[in-house]
Amino acid sequence: MNTKVSQPSPTTNLLEVKDLRVYYETPGGDILAVDSIDFELKEGETLGLVGESGCGKSTAAMGILQLVQPPGRIVSGEVRLQGKDLLTLSEGKMRQLRWSKLALIPQGAMNSLNPTMRIYRQIQDVILTHQTTGSDKLSADQIKNRILELLRMVGLPERIYQMYPHELSGGMKQRVCIAMAIALNPSLIIADESTSALDVVVQRVVAQTILRVKQMLGVSMIIIGHDMGLMAQIVDRIAVMYAGKIVEIAAVRDIFNNPSHPYTQLLIESIPSLKEQKPLKVTEGLTHDPRHPPPGCIFQLRCPIVTDQCRSIAPKAHLIRVEQSVACHAYENTDVARTV
């Protein structure tokens, strides 16, 4: 790593996550929902976080946003946003950072709007709270215009302004959430599975909205989901999670053309295809108890190429090509030099 460069270049890291662990306390022992993940996100980049249900994607997002709720807790790690470690910030400092730097498009967008507040009030409150006192205070008219502008940006009609959430369709609520997320021009937006609860057509439309907003604002994003096809269209890199760990992280085309971790291969194979009719590959096999992961590799119970080594030693991440890293013993000897 070059430490002499002090000028932030276009490819500086906006976000660096190191050794982040988030556990949920349960009577039977801690659930290792996120167990030491590392990754970084460049300025303007979009990262997809995929993996099957329960692998810890949302928990990882909450860890980054410092919003882990009991019984969950952050056990260790660093979350550096523009160099500042969020874990060491005071609650008040963190509150100021929220939304102005770090916005969220939540997983349950259907129920993420306050049922007793009109749409405009819910966008307005976030603008008002984060307005620093002084000259840049907006007038009531300016705020109204800003909210209308935001609604237009996500393709919503102006009449939404005065409505209550229950008067909107699911797709509309989703777009309100997108409008809300971009209200303060944040540096990073985390979109949690923002499309899974909607029907396929709406899913695409919402994905397009996200894509358009991203292009308009150049904001960095982390998009969480399990629809690989959808991901391929909107993200630059994909991180594949399995049982609380990132098993592979690479550029989209490498994930699709050259999936390397056995789990990634499984994921890519199970994408349904129109051209050829192949039997649907069910991700069968034993899964372990998330409270007591086996020693060695977490994927060993389902891995088709498991070896004795996998049962005792946890694999390290191997950089098998520029920007493709895989946590699997099979790639032990394919490490490329880390320096570029």
């Binding site: 946003l65 919003l67 709720q69 963190m94 509150r95 100021q96 950072l97 929220r98 939304w99 102005s100 770090l102 916005a103 969220l104 939540p106 997983q107 349950g108 259907m110 129920n111 993420s112 709007l113 306050n114 049922p115 007793t116 507040m117 409150d125 976030v126 709270t129 984060h130 959430c177 809300m180």
Partner: peptide
């Protein structure tokens, strides 16, 4: 509720959340 989650993510002031998001509902 999901909207409480979003309210916290929005960085609203605790008393504002208490009144407008929690008590109100």
């Amino acid at each position: 509720e999901d909207y409480m989650h979003l309210a916290r993510a929005k960085g609203l002031r605790p008393f504002y959340i208490l009144y407008h998001y929690m008590i109100r509902n």
